[in-house]
């Protein structure tokens, strides 16, 4: 069979050695290196990772959109494994966005949660992909499950631009990202933000590749299992 599956994934393992130090350096940048924000105080430090999680969550759901279309169009389990891996990572990041956001909101706005456009639409995205995972578990035995999941993945990912642009379309209290107004941002803050986003992206890629590899291997295992059982019967 392919040589890739015979090796014990040196590449995927090496990713850990890249990602974990990156996250630690990112934490250093966010919590020690970046200067204290004057109006919001230390709580503003959340934002370095919050932004990274949010942008990579959108990125993951974009991957879901493309690979779900790929699965319905071309077929083949590789597309579906890609979509599932991206959903898991995107969902995880979406959860982290929803956990880190309220901590900041409590200090800046005085409440954990408001029904603001950006917050509500992020929650909605989380609910949609939670239902995607429900579908996959509830219909695990159905041979059509992967196609159903792809359809739901497409419908869900269509909401991503709405979440992204909700800040512009509706009146919202949510701050727009600082990247677009680089001039105003303190250079040390800018460096920290960029590094944290990179670290979070690296983590997302590592998690995604591992999850996808598991899916690919499970297909191979199922195939071998079927071949083995067939041999037993004969």
């Amino acid at each position: 069979m392919s040589a890739r599956t015979k090796t014990a994934f040196p590449f995927l393992r090496a990713l850990d050695l890249l990602v974990i130090p990156m996250i630690l350096v990112g934490l250093y940048f966010a919590y020690l290196y970046a200067p204290r924000e004057t109006t919001m105080g230390d709580v503003q430090r959340i934002f370095y990772f919050h932004v990274g999680f949010a942008l990579n969550c959108f990125l993951a759901f974009t991957v879901v959109f493309v690979s779900s279309i790929g699965f319905l169009w071309k077929g083949g389990r590789a597309w579906d494994d890609t979509a599932l891996a991206a959903v898991e990572v995107g969902f995880l990041y979406c959860t982290l966005v929803l956990l880190t956001g309220p901590v900041w909101a409590r200090s800046a706005w005085g409440v954990w949660w408001t029904w603001d456009a950006r917050l509500t639409s992020t929650l909605l995205l989380w609910l949609i992909f939670a239902s995607y995972l429900f579908l996959r578990t509830y219909m695990a035995e159905d041979p059509r499950m992967r196609r159903y999941a792809a359809a739901l993945g497409i419908l869900g990912a269509l909401n991503v631009p709405i979440v992204y642009y909700s800040v512009k379309w509706f009146n919202t209290q949510h701050p727009t990202t600082f990247i677009t107004q680089r001039g105003k941002l303190d250079p040390q803050m800018a460096v920290s933000l960029r590094f944290c986003m990179l670290a979070v992206l690296a983590l997302a890629v590592a998690l995604f590749l591992k999850r996808r590899a598991i899916g690919r291997l499970e297909e191979e295992r199922d195939r071998l299992m079927a071949a083995y059982e067939e041999g037993e019967i004969r």
Partner: peptide
């Protein structure tokens, strides 16, 4: 997040072992 990463590594190893064993039996 660390636990999730660790879990993924373990699942990867397990499936990999399963495949090796099945191949051998075949």
């Amino acid at each position: 997040l660390g636990v999730y990463l660790f879990q993924l590594n373990r699942r990867l190893d397990r499936v990999h072992r399963d495949i090796a064993e099945l191949r051998e039996r075949l």
